[in-house]
């Protein structure tokens, strides 16, 4: 590593540490202001997730979806394509997986489960790919179109969950339960942690090698750095307006499938809510590095788990996590905190 890269790494690490530190300080101040037993609330917020294997397992479980959506966003951002429709793509993926599982009740878990996962990936990839296609073909603003399509899709999936696919035997707004054979193995009982965390970690590593070592990954990154230069270098830049979007959507669809088949076993209304937005934060904390997405997702899940533990054991509410996450969101792209060493690169157009 040359000196410049070390300096860049150093300033981005101190920037991240500063960001997280400020978020924690704000949470602690808020707890002191709001709580009647601040010591207890602070203890459970920070240490709670590690006090019981149930909390710890659920924290790991929560990170799975975030790893997938974080990867999806990282791939898109690396290629300078903008996927703002993660929420809808994940939700549609969850619905697609549920529909496939429910319509194939008698297949074996492997065959039907694979079909459900592939269906979810295809659904997400199609929805995001649409925005890529419009931009490739006519230069339609990708940021806005992906958001608009996603917002419409969320409402349509809501209609399916509460309307034609609603389970009448259940008072919740949800579809029927998927078959036993499609439910992922739980590996850390009594928590909800399931086997898909292995896939998530493997996917992160595979994505890293795909982006760094493969022909497509290289061309995508080149387009991300400078699309005009890549055009002159003979790269098919139009293709890479769509491919990264489709990959990104595929990851979001997968996150939806995993939420259903690993955790909830049914498509509840809003089952993936927040996965898309938080995936963006996760990717940004990871600086769009696929392997760094894993700790970033764990960190986000940790904030949630800490707030949950604090709610159960003290007098503060779960939404404290949201404030901490918002502070991190606010500061994670603040270049002033990250020194001048890092390259100035704008994420959104």
């Amino acid at each position: 590593m040359d000196r410049k890269r070390i300096a860049g790494l150093l300033s981005s690490t101190t920037g991240l540490a500063l960001t997280v530190g400020i978020a924690f300080v704000i949470v602690i101040i808020l707890i002191f202001v709001l709580s009647k037993e601040p010591g207890r609330a602070i203890y459970y917020f920070f240490v709670g997730p590690f006090t019981k294997s149930y909390y710890f397992g659920n924290m790991l479980n929560q990170s799975i979806g975030l790893i997938f959506t974080g990867l999806g966003i990282a791939v898109a951002f690396r290629s300078s394509t903008f996927n703002l429709g993660g929420e809808g793509q994940a939700y549609a993926g969850a619905m697609a997986a549920t529909v496939i599982c429910l319509s194939l009740p008698s297949l074996t878990g492997i065959v039907g489960g694979t079909a459900a996962i592939l269906g979810a990936i295809a659904t997400g990839a199609f929805l995001a790919g649409l925005s890529g296609f419009f931009r490739m073909r006519w230069g339609t603003d990708q940021l806005i179109s992906s958001f608009l399509i996603s917002a419409a899709v969320i409402l349509i999936v809501n209609y399916l969950v509460t309307g034609p696919l609603d389970d009448p035997t259940n008072s919740m707004l949800t579809t029927a339960r998927i078959g036993q054979q499609y439910q992922f193995l739980r590996i850390f009982k009594p928590s909800k942690l399931d086997i898909s965390i292995v896939f998530a970690v493997a996917a992160a590593i595979a994505t890293y090698f795909f982006m760094q070592r493969s022909h497509w990954g290289y061309e995508m990154r080149m387009c991300g750095i400078n699309r005009e230069f890549s055009r002159y270098a003979g790269i098919n830049v139009a293709k890479y307006l769509m491919v990264p979007m489709a990959i990104s959507g595929g990851f979001h669809g997968l996150a939806g499938a995993v939420a259903v088949m690993g955790t909830h076993y049914r498509c509840l209304k809003g089952v993936t809510a927040g996965l898309g937005w938080n995936g963006i934060a996760v990717a940004l904390i990871a600086k769009n590095n696929p392997v760094a997405v894993i700790p970033a997702a764990l960190f986000f899940a940790y904030l949630d788990a800490g707030a949950r533990a604090a709610m159960l054991h003290a007098d503060v509410t779960f939404e404290l996590a949201k404030i901490a996450q918002a502070v991190i969101f606010f500061l994670v792209t603040a270049q002033a905190l990250y020194g001048f060493f890092t390259t100035r690169k704008r994420v959104a157009a």
Partner: peptide, 9 residues
């Protein structure tokens, strides 16, 4: 002033 990405903020 802190030059963060406006979309993310």
């Amino acid at each position: 002033h802190l030059r963060a990405n406006i979309f993310i903020t």
